[in-house]
């Protein structure tokens, strides 16, 4: 990974890498990198935010973010990441990863191309994704953290994650293998769509989810879980810092409003009709 503390004395930085924003940057998920970097900087942790273009070797980092993207670019991203090999090496070295939507699918064992044919993913999550036959899942999602889902670092109380909120827009059905555990269970929306009500997956320090919003802006506790993992990897590289609570009043306000709105959405009859009919794509 990175080469320890700077000999000049500056502490080594926690490196957040946004993977291929030119390919996996369609749905605003680059915001996850912004959220992580800011939340580290506000705590006085030296941090670098790297936007890694797809035509360069993937830089070494402690925390990688993969976002949503269109079908063609998704295939290209998966191929390049597989050839590069850097992401798998980083995970083996203790780095944390967040994949959203297309990025989540790419982290799994297989994912579908534009025609629905299965292609090999990176295999960092024990999940398989196929094309949904029920059209796209588009809309607000509320998910309760699944039992045994990741816990906050001890410095932040060590508690479990609160309710997850986000917006999904995908045509994938993701099935969890035995190694991967679900991140949450949907009370609104489709999530993994495999009939078991799960949303997202996690395994070791690798997290996948279908939620945009971006996910970490609407779920700052999950951002801090990832930062906790990344920080322990960065400390081994000479980074100095610790997590402390932040004043998240505006984020809490947004979360409360989204969960209230979701309550309304869940009661709207056409929502149920759409869920039963499988929600044909608009436009």
């Amino acid at each position: 990974m990175t080469s320890g503390a700077d000999p000049a004395g500056a502490p080594a930085a926690l490196r957040v890498v946004v993977v291929y924003p030119d390919l996996l940057g369609t749905y605003g998920d680059g915001g996850n990198g912004t959220v992580l970097a800011r939340r580290a900087a506000w705590r006085g942790i030296p941090v670098e935010l790297l936007l890694a273009p797809s035509d360069e070797p993937l830089p070494a980092g402690h925390l990688y973010c993969l976002g949503g993207g269109e079908d063609g670019p998704q295939v290209r991203a998966a191929t390049l990441l597989s050839e590069d090999g850097g992401l798998a090496r980083a995970v083996a070295g203790g780095a944390a990863v967040l994949g959203v939507c297309a990025g989540f699918q790419v982290l799994g064992r297989t994912y579908p191309d534009a025609h629905g044919r299965p292609l090999p993913g990176l295999g960092l999550l024990d999940v398989e994704t196929r094309r949904s036959r029920r059209g796209r899942a588009v809309g607000e999602v509320v998910a309760e953290p699944a039992p045994g889902s990741p816990r906050l670092p001890p410095a932040l109380g060590g508690g479990g994650l609160p309710t997850l909120t986000g917006f999904e827009n995908h045509a994938g059905v993701t099935t969890l293998g035995t190694m991967a555990r679900p991140l949450g269970r949907v009370s609104l929306g489709v999530g993994n769509g495999d009939g078991d009500g799960t949303e997202g997956a996690w395994q070791g320090r690798v997290v996948g989810s279908y939620l945009h919003g971006p996910l970490l802006a609407r779920n700052t506790a999950l951002a801090d879980v990832l930062l906790g993992w990344a920080l322990s990897a960065a400390v081994a590289d000479g980074c100095v810092g610790d997590l402390r609570p932040l004043d998240d009043e505006e984020e809490a306000d947004l979360r409360a409003e989204r969960l209230r709105a979701a309550g309304h959405l869940a009661r709207r009859p056409e929502r149920w009709v759409r869920q039963v009919l499988g929600r044909p794509r608009g436009g």
Partner: peptide
Amino acid sequence: GADTSWLWD
């Protein structure tokens, strides 16, 4: 558009 994620772009 119902998804505000674009604000982050």
